[in-house]
């Protein structure tokens, strides 16, 4: 009923603010990804710490990057593994 009155008086909006919000959200995801090299370095060190509990990795050749596509941002890591550590995972 209320909708009908609104329509009769031409008050029905297109609700374009939701489109604005979604576009803004995506744009800001990309804008905010421009993080400092220091930030990436700290992240890398933390990752090495955690992964080293489970396997020996080649820290020198390790690469981590933030990559963009149109709809999302991904953290892509390429971490060469030298060998698994025994006794930390399977069978415990």
């Amino acid at each position: 009923m209320f909708d009908l009155i609104n329509k009769m008086f031409g008050k029905e909006g297109t609700g374009s603010k939701d489109i604005a919000k979604e576009r803004l959200r995506l744009v800001l995801v990309h804008d905010r990804v421009n993080v400092s090299p220091q930030f990436m370095e700290v992240l890398k060190e933390d990752m090495i710490k955690v992964i080293s509990n489970y396997m020996e990795i080649n820290e020198r050749d390790m690469e981590i990057n933030l990559t963009h596509t149109n709809t999302q941002v991904a953290l892509v890591a390429n971490i060469p593994v030298n060998r698994m550590k025994r006794g930390t995972i399977a069978g415990e």
Binding site: K11, G13, K17, K21, L24
Partner: peptide, 14 residues
């Protein structure tokens, strides 16, 4: 009110 402009809460949240 018509949903055609972001409101304060939207902007503050973002």
């Amino acid at each position: 009110k018509k949903g055609d402009m972001m409101d304060i809460d939207d902007i503050i949240e973002i």
